[in-house]
């Protein structure tokens, strides 16, 4: 389980609609907001770790949003740590893997 704390800023006059749209996104909870600055604090929960990044992308894609940045990241108790690496880095299987990759030889 991963939970992020995210600051969202809604454009002028868009606070209510943005809050409503945020509330409809999966894993997103709206916690507090400040009408004067359009700032909204949300948490984002994702099933697995990469879902978090996808979730932030979905927030950023909402209309009326000026800014959405992660502020806080909680990952201590992640039961399914993602170990995925880019394939060319994953070639590194013990020391045998540290060799000049094919892509560098042509």
């Amino acid at each position: 389980m991963n939970i992020s704390g995210i600051l969202v800023v809604a454009g002028p006059g868009r606070l209510d609609t943005v809050k409503e749209q945020l509330g409809r996104l999966e894993g997103v909870d709206v916690h507090q907001h400040d009408p004067a600055s359009g700032r909204i604090i949300v948490t984002l929960e994702a099933e697995d770790v990469s879902g978090e990044v996808e979730g932030l992308k979905r927030i950023k894609a909402l209309p009326g949003i000026v800014l959405a940045e992660m502020v806080y990241h909680y990952f201590e108790d992640d039961p399914h740590p993602v170990s995925e690496l880019p394939p060319e880095l994953d070639e590194v299987d013990g020391l045998e893997g540290i060799r000049v990759p094919a892509a560098l030889r042509d």
Binding site: G5, H31, D34, T43, V71, Y72
Partner: peptide, 27 residues
Amino acid sequence: MEITRREFLKSSIAATTAATVGMPLIQ
């Protein structure tokens, strides 16, 4: 993780986030 623990964590994280960006904290 049981639901209460999760909700608790979320409100803690929201509070830390708010404090971090200088928004007043919920009691």
